[in-house]
């Protein structure tokens, strides 16, 4: 799980919210690429423009006309991948976290686990599947870039190796440290958060709202459960050994007690049942 990140060979998306005008060309390109149905106002959507099973990426407008493109963060150590009990979600070496609906059993633990609240479910369907951005894995393998970054008319969201993207992000924030948030010493969102993500942001507004909590920390999320889960084999053997030991000890003590009682009161017949039960 905790492999060293090979930034040179894994791909990433860098979104610079200062360049985004909120035109939604990325959303349109994504919907075209995956043939997604038009958005509808279902009960489970409080906002039709939010991420949904028909919208893998979307633009969220923050107060003051700041447009932030939301999509799957493609964490380097994804919580969803570690949560999935059938391996329907996989982190590919190229960077994308992809989903295989043939394996999925629909438990929705990935949706519970994601620190950014990304996976969406096709609730309206009687045969529902999980839907989320897969960073155009097929296009990346063909040597193309994802549909969204290709479509952006302003270069607000760009694609490249993670190393290139980090270099570019550092170049931008060092050139204009007062333009980016936190002003003075800007942060690259996703550089270290939850162990690093393959979708990076630099922004002129606080992007903490993207996660479930303002501070997600730099620790990879899967480590939290792995700490408990790794104890399973020793605990299993320990419990089994302990129970066998207790059974043997108590059985022997009762046996000895009986023998003693037999010796003490030879003609007793009231104790003979005890050994049976």
């Amino acid at each position: 799980m905790s492999a060293k990140v090979d930034n040179k060979h894994t791909f990433a998306i860098l979104t610079d919210t200062t360049k985004c005008t909120g035109c939604e060309a990325c959303v349109h390109a994504c919907k075209q690429t995956y043939g997604l149905e038009r958005d509808r106002a279902w009960r489970w959507k409080q906002n039709v423009d939010d991420l949904s099973s028909t919208r893998f990426t979307t633009i969220t407008t923050r107060p003051g006309s700041h447009h932030v493109r939301r999509q799957c963060r493609h964490c380097l150590e994804p919580a969803c991948v570690s949560a999935c009990l059938v391996g329907a979600l996989q982190k590919t070496p190229e960077g994308p976290v992809i989903y295989d609906e043939k394996r999925c059993m629909g438990c929705r633990y990935c949706m519970m686990a994601c620190p950014y609240g990304i996976p969406r479910y096709k609730w309206e369907s009687a045969v529902p599947v999980v839907r989320k951005c897969i960073m155009c894995h097929d296009r990346i393998k063909e040597g193309k870039q994802p549909a969204c970054t290709e479509a952006c008319p302003y270069g607000a969201t760009i694609f490249g190796t993670r190393e290139e993207m980090l270099t570019e992000a550092h170049r931008r924030i060092e050139a204009e440290p007062d333009k980016y948030y936190p002003h003075g010493s800007p942060k690259i969102y996703g550089e270290h958060d939850v162990g690093g993500t393959s979708v990076l942001y630099i922004s002129d507004v606080n992007l903490d709202f993207l996660g479930w909590k303002p501070e997600l920390g730099d620790e990879p999320v899967p480590a939290l459960t792995w700490g408990a889960l790794r104890k399973v084999p020793p605990v299993a053997l320990g419990v089994a050994a302990l129970m066998s030991g207790v059974y043997w000890m108590i059985g022997r003590r009762m046996h000895l007690q009986e023998l003693q009682e037999d010796v003490e009161q030879v003609p007793g017949d009231g104790t003979s049942n005890a050994s049976e039960s």
Partner: peptide
């Protein structure tokens, strides 16, 4: 509760042992 209940046997042939839910299942 499962979205695809006819896949309930999948953990047996597609184990992912980093998942707590796999252990529970």
């Amino acid at each position: 509760d499962l979205g695809l209940p006819w896949h309930i046997w999948h953990p047996m042939i597609m184990p992912q042992h980093h998942s707590v839910l796999f252990e529970v299942a």
